[in-house]
């Protein structure tokens, strides 16, 4: 197919439109029509439940429900969402949460990967499984258990911090601590898949590079920072971007543990929770749709930004 289509485009140019069409028709004639049949269910599902829904969301974002009818109101939803201090509070919380979880979590994963890599296969599998296990448990369940761990009166976290002489804290009820508590929870349970991927990539680094570095007198630390980390950059970029996209949509923990609170402005209100709250509690579907499109914009801009940042560092 790749070869067919390239000959089709090579043999034609923009001014020779009929030839170009004939080329396409030829490629189509040679096509395996079963291909279309096989991808049809997926494409249909995709067109209905993704493409159509995105257009619907864009349309909703310009509308407002008035007396049971959707009415066109132009950019009002956007201006209202952008002027609402709650939006910016949620953005700020989400950025703090996401960057902390991704940066600290990835740092911990990198160190742990270095520590388990080059141990025996069994040891590696054992620790990787232990680190990954929390990720298979429903985040609702994890949130319920952590709510109990964070309990201000009888929670075990206060017993642990008490050993160090720290007085009892209301981890989820104190506006200064609530977001940090959610971050702590996410980092402790969340390193598994990063560690699996990082150790897999470490296996791809040629041993000769370490030998050469060693002959040059590089210390263990230098070898880690100058050989391992630079060569892991593509994997780190991937984990950074996917981690950012995933964590930026944090919702379930907030729903179960804090409902966006405590305090005002709400200390753990995130963009995902704000969208849910607007759409399904305040029944402002238009505003929620506008906010969800802004969420997408932020994710898009940041993903491109991260790619550029890492790409720039690659060229030296």
């Amino acid at each position: 197919m790749a070869r067919l289509s390239s000959t089709a485009t090579n043999s034609t140019s923009r001014r020779a439109n009929p030839n170009w069409l004939a080329g396409l028709a030829y490629v189509f004639k040679k096509s395996n029509k079963w291909g279309y049949v096989f991808i049809a269910p997926l494409v249909l599902d995709f067109l209905v439940f993704t493409v159509y829904m995105v257009f619907y969301a864009v349309q909703l974002s310009f509308q407002e429900m008035q007396a049971g009818q959707f009415v066109w109101i132009g950019l009002n939803n956007y201006t209202q969402v952008l002027q609402n201090p709650l939006t910016w509070n949620a953005m700020r919380n989400t950025f703090i949460y996401t960057l902390s979880v991704v940066v600290l979590g990835l740092g911990a994963a990198l160190v742990l990967s270095e520590l388990i890599f080059r141990r025996g296969t069994r040891t590696q599998v054992f620790y990787k499984s232990a680190f990954y296990l929390p990720a298979v448990v429903s985040s609702i369940v994890v949130a319920l258990v952590w709510t109990w761990i964070f309990n201000p009166f009888f929670g075990i976290l206060n017993a642990v911090t008490g050993i160090f002489g720290i007085p009892k804290q209301n981890w989820l009820g104190n506006p200064d601590l609530a977001l940090a508590s959610l971050i702590l929870m996410a980092i402790i349970g969340g390193g598994g898949s990063s560690i699996v991927l990082l150790t897999a990539s470490m296996g791809g680094i040629p041993t000769e590079l370490y030998d050469a570095a060693k002959i040059d007198g590089a210390s263990e630390w230098t070898r880690f920072t100058r050989v391992t980390v630079p060569l892991l950059r593509p994997t780190l970029l991937y984990l950074f971007v996917t981690g950012f996209i995933g964590n930026f949509q944090v919702f379930e923990q907030v729903y179960v543990m804090t409902s966006g609170g405590p305090g005002f402005p709400p200390a753990t209100d995130t963009v995902g929770f704000r969208i849910y709250d607007m759409a399904f509690r305040s029944v402002q579907f238009g505003g929620a749709a506008a906010l969800s499109l802004l969420l997408f914009l932020v994710i898009l801009v940041f993903s491109v930004f991260q790619f550029r940042l890492f790409a720039a560092e690659l060229e030296y």
Binding site: M53, I275, L295, F296
Partner: peptide, 17 residues
Amino acid sequence: STLMIPSFITIIPQYQV
């Protein structure tokens, strides 16, 4: 190219439909 679209975008219209 649509893998990056957050589920929050589609979930509101999906609910409506």
